[in-house]
Amino acid sequence: MRLRAAHVRVRVPATSANLGPGFDALGMALGLHDDLGVRALGSSEVRVEVEGEGAGEVPDDERHLVVRALRAALDHVGAPQTGLHLVCRNRIPHGRGLGSSAAAVVAGLLAARGLVGDPEVLGDDDVLALATELEGHPDNAAPALLGGCTLAWSADDGGAVRAVRLPVHADVAPVAIVPPQHLSTHAARGVLPAQVPHADAAWQAGRAGLLVEALGRRPDLLLDATGDRLHQGYRRSVMPESLALVDALRARGVAAVVSGAGPTVLALARRVGAPVEASGSTATGEGVGADVHATDADAAVADAFGGVRAGWRVLRLPVDPEGATVRALLD
């Protein structure tokens, strides 16, 4: 297998996993993207340039997660390794529960697909399997790859990982409320118990099923459908401000959850009125993307903060229906 392209561009969305009760299974792609240019070099040199999120913090050599994922994909298909020049324009916040590591992994795998030039040898099933191997679980990788809302699972014997897209009602309008502080996924997972009460597990299964219905056809049920007893409460000690915000928003009727491992809070709001400007001129914060609407959570978010957000960003982010993309460049 040889490389057929020397320069590719990859775009990959932010994601929010769990969505409350769908722990390690449900995820949603959001309209906030990292853009990468990846060039194969004739030497063994590796250069990584990062603008935006993670600049000056992430590795700029072989240790960079995009490079590691790309090399794993090339090995998987038997393609030769190569020197690399990456230019990363990152908009997805790091360490905030918005899938930045999954985005990097999927970006590297898709870059390899573009360099090889044959999507059949790195199909979506292959990419999802490799991403899960690198990430440890598929809940962020699946929506980053496929777009929209996804449900991911693995075979009972620990075999193949699979994912399907779920319908999302046009009125669902996610709002990400991003704190200034980071939190590692390892720390967030470290406080979870090895076992939970049977009653909580049964309750959670019902809410997860209800969430699929609420997202697809009944957004009016989102508040009930986003209840959780398996992970968020146990994480209160490592993200008290985030869980306090979740409590405050839910008390005001907003379907708020911890986004992934946190500490970002995600409100699964409903759109109201006409689209708003994407410049961030509205009362609740920055709008990102072309499909940005006022939501029924805006007043509750403003009320919960009491006008003082102390570094928190409020981002209205449409559901990204496309997922990660790659295209070869001719230069």
Rank of each mutant, 00 (worst) to 15 (best):
D126P: 11
D126M: 14
L109D: 10
G99Q: 02
A111K: 07
L115S: 08
S101P: 12
G108T: 04
A129I: 13
S101M: 06
A102S: 14
L128F: 05
V116M: 11
G117A: 07
V106P: 10
A104N: 11
A112R: 04
V121E: 04
G99T: 07
L98W: 08
R113F: 03
A129C: 12
P119Y: 03
A112V: 00
S101K: 02
L109E: 10
V116W: 00
P119I: 03
L109A: 06
G108V: 05
S100P: 09
P119H: 04
L98G: 12
V121R: 08
V105A: 13
S101V: 07
V127S: 01
A107R: 08
A103V: 13
S101A: 04
G117W: 01
L109Q: 04
G108H: 07
A111G: 14
V116G: 08
V105K: 10
L115A: 05
G108K: 02
S100K: 01
V116P: 07
V105G: 12
V121L: 05
G99N: 06
G123N: 12
G99H: 05
V127M: 01
D118Q: 06
V116E: 13
A107K: 03
A102H: 06
L122Q: 01
G117H: 09
A107G: 14
A107W: 00
A103H: 09
D118K: 03
V116Y: 04
R113S: 08
G123D: 14
A102K: 07
V116I: 11
G117E: 10
G117M: 05
S101C: 03
L109R: 01
A102C: 13
G114I: 01
L128P: 05
A103G: 10
V121N: 00
V105P: 12
